Simulated assay, not measured.
Amino acid sequence: MNQQRLMQVILAPIVSEKSNLLAEKRSQIAFKVLPNATKPEIKAAVELLFGVKVDSVSTIQVKGKSKRFGKVMGKRQDWKKAYVSLMPGQELDLESAAARAE
């Protein structure tokens, strides 16, 4: 896995009530990732970008919703979500990680 590919795998963190509960209770973080990203790539990318040890990765294919634009039916894009579990004792702070990236 080359480093350029790993830098592009993670598109954005998912910040919602559900993801905040998972972060507090299970030490899991949710990310939007590339649709063709594999679990080993996601694990390596999180470890590279945030400097934490990853325990496991679970992925979900999210189907795009059908939407109506006047008379025309449209469809949002399908995308992939990854739940990353951290090793015990590891913590990921997205705010400090964003400051380091800038």
Rank of each mutant, 00 (worst) to 15 (best):
W79P: 02
M73E: 06
S85M: 07
K75T: 04
P88A: 10
R68W: 02
V72T: 13
S96G: 03
E91D: 02
G70T: 03
K81A: 09
L94N: 15
R68N: 04
V72H: 08
F69G: 00
V84T: 04
S96C: 05
P88N: 12
A82G: 06
A99V: 09
K75R: 12
F69E: 07
Q90C: 12
A82M: 04
A99F: 04
Q77H: 00
V84P: 03
K75S: 02
D78M: 01
K80F: 12
R100M: 14
L94E: 12
K75E: 08
E95A: 15
A97I: 06
S96Y: 06
L94G: 15
K75C: 00
S85V: 02
P88Q: 11
V72Q: 10
R68T: 05
R76Y: 05
R76P: 00
M87K: 15
M73F: 01
Y83M: 15
G89D: 12
R76G: 05
K75N: 05
R68F: 00
Y83R: 11
L86Y: 01
K71D: 12
Q77A: 09
Y83E: 11
V84K: 02
S96F: 01
L94Y: 14
E95T: 15
D78A: 06
A98S: 13
G70C: 02
F69I: 01
L92E: 11
D93L: 14
D78E: 06
K75Y: 01
P88S: 08
S85P: 05
S96D: 14
R76H: 09
A97Y: 05
E91C: 00
P88H: 10
A82C: 07
K71S: 11
D93A: 14
Y83N: 11
L92F: 07
V84W: 10
G74H: 03
G70H: 03
A82S: 10
A82Q: 04
G74M: 07
D78N: 08
F69M: 04
G89Y: 11
A82I: 01
G89I: 07
M73H: 03
K80I: 11
S96V: 10
G70E: 04
A101L: 14
E91F: 04
Q90M: 13
A97Q: 14
K80Q: 13
A97P: 09
Q90T: 10
A97S: 14
W79D: 01
K81F: 06
K71C: 01
E95R: 15
R76M: 01
M87T: 13
R100G: 14
D93S: 15
F69S: 02
A101E: 12
A101N: 11
A99M: 08
V84E: 05
W79N: 01
M73C: 00
L92P: 05
G89H: 05
A98R: 10
V72C: 06
A97E: 13
E91H: 07
A99I: 10
K81L: 06
E91I: 00
P88L: 06
A101G: 04
A99E: 13
D78Y: 01
Y83C: 10
K71G: 11
K71Q: 12
L94R: 15
Q90D: 11
D78I: 01
A101Q: 13
A101F: 14
P88Y: 10
A97F: 12
L92H: 03
Q77N: 04
Q90V: 06
L92N: 09
M87W: 11
L86P: 08
Q90E: 15
Q90H: 09
A97G: 14
K75M: 07
K80T: 13
G89P: 07
K81W: 04
